[in-house]
């Protein structure tokens, strides 16, 4: 289908974007790889698209005070190739090749993936697993929201209608950081049926403080806390068994809830191996 009629404006700067977003029914346009698809399907009908692609200063990747900051307009392809991300945020580096297809990665942005908050998307789960945070600019100035508080419900985040997500920040990996990532998708690059992003600290045998964050199994990224505790206690079998209590997936077009729970266990065994590897 064709999108409904809307007006289009190119924001010159962050302030200008926030001003334009004050128009009733305005919607921010970044890579467009989710938004334009939904417009073509007429799932929404904004009055105005505010294109932020021309705004400078939102495409940097930089290490600051032990945290890696990634600008909202960094494209998936840029993140995939970034030496800084490979070194300081290896979990994100592992997730990148699974996100979309070549042409989509050339346009889609990291900020857009976080803001859109598809429950089957990789990056929101990575951000939660890493205990990262989101930097937001809005009509009342700037604020920082922890990843744990950012994802509220299905496609719902801490962002207000006039807010612009400007960057995400994650703690830079250290020598004892361990990460693991695995997902199952019917076609490489499509959204996952089930996926798992995990981070922990190396500490003798069992991974310490593991954070196991599933995607594709709920309305937001889902932490498997009982499985985390079992894994920290050294029992992978108990961790896999605990998933039945941690996760409550719904049947969807991809798989039934029972299949998803089973696959979550399969992924946990794969990821646990990655967490052990130095």
């Amino acid at each position: 289908m064709k999108p409904p009629a809307f007006a289009y404006a190119k924001a010159r700067a962050l302030d200008h974007a926030i001003e334009l977003l004050g128009v009733d029914g305005a919607r921010l346009l970044a890579g467009g790889q989710s938004l334009i698809a939904t417009l073509n399907m007429r799932l929404s009908s904004p009055s105005l698209l505010v294109d932020i692609n021309g705004i400078g200063g939102l495409e940097g990747i930089a290490l600051r005070d032990g945290r890696l900051e990634i600008g909202a307009l960094v494209r998936h392809v840029q993140a995939e190739r970034s030496a800084e991300i490979a070194r300081h945020a290896p979990l994100i580096a592992r997730a990148m090749p699974h996100i979309g297809h070549a042409a989509i990665r050339n346009r889609g942005t990291l900020g857009g993936s976080i803001a859109f908050a598809d429950p089957a998307a990789e990056l929101p789960a990575c951000l939660v697993a890493l205990g990262g945070e989101v930097e937001i600019a809005g009509p009342e100035g700037r604020r920082t929201v922890a990843a744990d508080d950012f994802f509220k419900d299905l496609f719902e985040t801490a962002l207000g209608p006039r807010d612009v997500l400007t960057a995400i920040r994650v703690p830079a990996a250290t020598a004892d950081t361990r990460v693991g990532f695995a997902e199952l998708a019917r076609r490489h690059g499509d959204y996952a049926m089930v996926g798992l992003a995990a981070a922990a600290r190396a500490d003798g045998k069992a991974p310490k403080d593991p954070r196991l964050v599933y995607f594709g199994v709920g309305t937001t990224p889902v932490r498997a806390r009982k499985a985390e505790a079992a894994l920290a206690g050294g029992s992978l079998d108990q961790a896999v068994a605990a998933l039945a209590q941690d996760l409550a997936p719904q049947d969807d077009v991809q798989a039934t809830a029972a299949v998803k729970t089973h696959l979550a266990g399969v992924l946990l065994r794969r990821v646990a191996q990655q967490l052990e590897a130095a």
Partner: peptide, 21 residues
């Protein structure tokens, strides 16, 4: 027309993109 099939692929500023997105 929603990014899945790739039939609309064109090049913009040297990289391939979905012409429908």
């Amino acid at each position: 027309e929603h990014g899945v099939c790739g039939a609309c692929t064109v090049r913009v500023d040297g990289v391939v993109v979905r012409g429908c997105l």
